[in-house]
Simulated scan of single mutants.
Amino acid sequence: MNNRHFLLSATAVLVLSACGGGGGGGGGSTPPPPPVSTHSPVTPANATRVASNAYAAASAIGDSSTSLNGFLTGVSVGRANISVVSPVLKLVKQAYARDGQPLLTGVTLTEACTGGGTITIDATVRSQDTISNGDAVKITANNCVEDGDTLNGVLGTTFSNITGDMLNSWTWTATMDARFTQFSIRSGSETVSVNGDMKIAMIQTNATTSSVTVSGSSLQTTEQRSGMNLASRNLSDYSMTGSTRGSTVTSTASFTMSGNTSALGQFSYSVRNLQPFVTNGTGMPSAGALIVEGASSSVTLTVASATGVRLDLSAKGDGVITQTTNLAWAEFLMSI
Rank of each mutant, 00 (worst) to 15 (best):
D147Y: 13
L151Q: 08
N234W: 06
A253P: 02
S160F: 00
T150C: 06
S226Y: 06
L155V: 03
A231G: 07
G246S: 04
T158G: 01
N168E: 12
N206Q: 01
A136F: 06
G148H: 14
R186A: 10
I131C: 04
W170I: 13
I131A: 02
A253Y: 14
S169K: 08
M228C: 06
T205G: 02
S226W: 03
V125G: 03
A253H: 13
N142T: 14
F183L: 09
A136S: 13
V212D: 02
N168H: 15
R179D: 09
S187E: 07
C113G: 00
T208L: 03
I203E: 03
L155H: 10
A112D: 09
V249C: 11
D149A: 14
I121K: 01
T191I: 03
G156K: 01
L219S: 08
R225C: 04
M240N: 12
F159M: 00
G188T: 12
T191G: 07
S193C: 08
A136R: 07
R225Y: 13
S211M: 11
T252S: 14
V249K: 09
T181G: 06
G216E: 01
G116H: 09
M198I: 07
I200E: 03
G188Q: 09
Q128Y: 14
R186M: 08
D197H: 13
S169N: 11
S132G: 00
I203L: 07
T108I: 03
N133M: 12
L155C: 02
D177Q: 04
S210M: 07
V125Q: 04
D147V: 09
E223Y: 14
L219Y: 10
M176G: 10
G164K: 09
G242W: 10
S236Y: 14
D129K: 04
N234A: 01
A178C: 02
L155K: 06
G246Q: 02
Y238P: 00
S236I: 09
N168S: 10
V212R: 08
D147F: 05
S254G: 08
G116E: 04
T175H: 05
R225D: 06
I131Y: 06
I203R: 11
T175S: 12
D135F: 02
G156P: 02
T118V: 07
R186V: 07
L230C: 06
V154A: 01
S226H: 07
T175N: 02
V154G: 02
N152E: 00
T208P: 01
L167F: 14
M176Q: 13
I185E: 05
A174Q: 01
G115D: 02
Y238N: 04
C113P: 08
L155T: 07
T181F: 00
S132E: 05
Q128K: 15
A207I: 05
R186T: 15
N195S: 02
A174F: 07
S210I: 00
A201S: 00
T150F: 01
R245S: 10
R245K: 09
I185S: 06
R186N: 06
T241R: 13
V125H: 09
N142F: 10
A174R: 04
D147K: 12
K138A: 10
T114I: 00
L235M: 15
T163S: 11
S251I: 11
S215W: 11
T221Q: 11
T150Y: 05
E223P: 08
Q224F: 15
I185L: 05
V125D: 04
T110M: 00
G196H: 09
V212Q: 08
S215N: 02
L151T: 08
G116T: 01
